[in-house]
């Protein structure tokens, strides 16, 4: 089992690689609780992002984990759950 923690910075990097940026609120600030929709990422962008997280971290995310995560905080938590790091603080 991987022990690497998934942070919001990891998510920002993968979002940029998967779907680019510039169509919504900037990723540079504190985005943990901003809806993906407001950030400019639709369901397809999140599908692509989820696929890249799965490849990089060698996990298999539940499809609903991606579709139900409306904010970066929720998605980071879902990934860490899968990594067995449920209690991790997403910011650190």
């Amino acid at each position: 089992m991987s022990t690497t923690e998934f942070t919001v910075e990891d998510l920002k990097r993968i979002l940029r690689e998967a779907a680019g940026s510039g169509d919504g609120v900037s990723l540079d600030g504190d985005i943990l609780d901003i809806d993906f929709e407001v950030l400019g990422y639709d369901s397809l962008a999140l599908l692509e992002t989820g696929g890249r997280i799965e490849r990089e971290y060698e996990i298999s995310l539940d499809e609903s984990a991606i579709s139900e995560a409306e904010t970066p905080r929720a998605l980071v938590e879902a990934v860490n759950n899968d990594l067995g790091l449920a209690q991790a603080d997403p910011v650190s």
Partner: peptide
């Protein structure tokens, strides 16, 4: 164009 558009 933004990278958001270019990537897709």
């Amino acid at each position: 164009l933004t990278s958001r558009i270019i990537s897709q």
